[in-house]
């Protein structure tokens, strides 16, 4: 119930926050742009719509997860609202989990609105792609949940600005971890250690990317989907536990 109270309050803050609306506006504008593009590229409509639609859901979702997410946590510390939370019978883990779930709830609403626009458009041009696109969105949402956990983890010990930077870096590298490993295998020992470490420590966000398959109509194995979801959930749990441990030791000055 306490977790729920914090989550709902976080969601309420996000909804009443103007930043969020502007990001939403951008996402919708971008999807709208694909309509215009579509007129120019005859014969490629569905590919471009799918590409742009999924990419913008993913990118705007990530921006919201990284920046709004971090803002909502670090603001509690910077504005000292956390003083009255931590002094109540609320454990730090409870606070972290509540914040996290509130952000995920916010993202769910965001993604739902963006997806509704995108899928409506897609249905007009290629209704057979709607179901595969839904799967892709599901995995994007899982990816966003991981990115949110990364954001929470960083903001448990770092400033808002640095956390935002770190999160975006993890997101970028997270899409290239397999390449990183290949690169490491071709380099010296020290480099191999480093890339090996990064490969295991950073989330492999490719597990959540089936955009290509959807665009080209290639079916995705159910086992892959299931494994990706399990991987995401495990990754999120570990990050939240570590964030709680860091938060437990923290002084709020």
């Amino acid at each position: 119930m306490k977790v729920q109270a914090i989550a709902v309050n976080t969601f309420r803050e996000a909804v009443r926050d103007k930043v969020l609306y502007s990001l939403l506006f951008f996402a919708i504008a971008l999807i709208g742009a694909s309509v215009v593009l579509n007129r120019l590229a005859i014969g490629q409509q569905t590919k471009i719509i799918t590409d742009l639609g999924l990419a913008s859901i993913s990118i705007f979702g990530t921006l919201i997860a990284a920046f709004v997410g971090i803002g909502l946590v670090s603001k509690e510390i910077e504005r000292r609202t956390i003083f009255t939370i931590v002094s109540k019978p609320v454990s730090r883990g409870c606070f972290i989990l509540g914040k996290y779930l509130g952000l995920v709830l916010t993202l769910a609403v965001e993604v739902a609105i963006m997806s509704a626009c995108f899928l409506t458009m897609l249905a007009i041009y290629a209704d057979d792609l709607v179901i595969p696109a839904l799967w892709a969105i599901g995995l994007i949402f899982m990816e966003l949940s991981v990115v949110t956990a990364v954001a929470i983890f960083f903001s448990s010990f770092s400033t808002a600005f640095l956390s935002g930077l770190f999160t975006m870096a993890v997101w970028l590298i997270g899409h290239f971890t397999p390449d990183l490993r290949v690169f490491g295998e071709r380099s010296g020992t020290a480099m191999r250690w480093l890339t090996e470490f990064l490969y295991y420590a950073l989330p492999n966000l490719r597990n959540f990317n089936i955009k290509e398959q959807v665009v080209h109509g290639i079916p995705v194995a159910a086992e892959f989907m299931a494994l990706s979801v399990v991987y995401g959930l495990v990754y999120v749990s570990v990050l939240l536990v570590v964030a709680t441990l860091v938060f437990e030791r923290r002084d709020f000055v």
Binding site: N9, R12, E13, R16, D17, R79, R80, T81, F83, T84, S87
Partner: peptide, 9 residues
């Protein structure tokens, strides 16, 4: 707390 600040929304 001293000089409290609360959720203004």
């Amino acid at each position: 707390p001293e000089n409290p600040y609360f959720y203004d929304y």
